[in-house]
């Protein structure tokens, strides 16, 4: 469970002060498939970065499970991200010198998982994102959609508590977007993986189960839908 309490964040950009978040309260439970939406500049990225421990709030608290992440040192926080949070980025951010398989395997190596477990899980994940025939390709030999699927597999490799994805489909065409969402939804339903993602794309919003709308650093609405399987 993720518990966000009264998060406030102000950027001090030299002269200008920007209040990116003005008091966010939020609880996200295991197994959710949640979209964070809102106009540009409403604070979606800032919120996701703070939940992911990449940025720190000026005020308020983020609790993940029983951990108040503000209490962790920098190194503990990095280690916490490795073991508890999966990240999918807008521009994929795979390691260019590593193949699809190696990119997925990487976090498990950092977790010191043994060879057998690593190989099995890597193969399983690449199969589940439909890339079993691309395992030895480097990122620049794959399409954007394929790279983002590798990124999803990478995010899941470390068996995180939840996956954070900031506009994961922004760089993808509609086919690739639909494809990625299918995969994420299936992983959510079949393996109970928690996804929290931000998006501008109405087709993506339509498929989310919970939609949190932000504006001006505040939550405007928070609605849970019945799943409409297509």
């Amino acid at each position: 469970m993720i518990q966000v309490t009264d998060i406030q964040k102000t950027y001090n950009d030299g002269k200008v002060q920007v209040q990116a978040l003005r008091g966010i309260d939020l609880v996200i439970k295991e197994g959710e498939f949640t979209a964070i939406v809102g106009p540009s500049g409403s604070g979606k990225t800032t919120l996701l970065n703070i939940i992911g421990g990449l940025d720190s709030p000026n005020y308020g608290k983020v609790k993940i499970g029983n951990t108040d992440i503000a209490q962790l040192t920098e190194n503990e926080l990095i280690d916490f991200r490795l073991n508890h949070i999966g990240f999918v980025f807008q521009s994929y951010n795979l390691i260019p010198v590593l193949t699809a398989k190696e990119n997925v395997e990487f976090l498990m190596l950092l977790q010191k998982k043994d060879d057998k477990e690593r190989n099995e899980r890597t193969t399983k994940l690449l199969v589940s994102v439909g890339l079993e025939d691309q395992i030895n390709k480097k990122p620049n030999e794959m399409s954007g959609g394929q790279q983002q699927r590798v990124a999803v597999a990478r995010a899941l490799a470390s068996k995180p508590d939840f996956v954070l994805a900031d506009e994961p489909t922004a760089n993808l065409d509609s086919t690739a977007t639909a494809n990625l969402l299918d995969i994420m939804l299936r992983l959510n339903q079949e393996e109970n993986i928690t996804f929290i993602f931000s998006t501008h794309d109405q087709r993506v919003i339509d498929r989310a189960r919970r939609v949190i709308t932000m504006e001006d650093g505040k939550i405007l609405s928070d609605s849970m839908k019945q799943m409409t399987d297509k």
């Binding site: 990095i78 280690d79 990240f87 951010n93 390691i95 950092l110």
Partner: peptide, 16 residues
Amino acid sequence: SFEYGVLIAVGMAKTK
């Protein structure tokens, strides 16, 4: 530095 940022974000210790 971009890649180093990614590596650190996803959980690679800075010493590594």
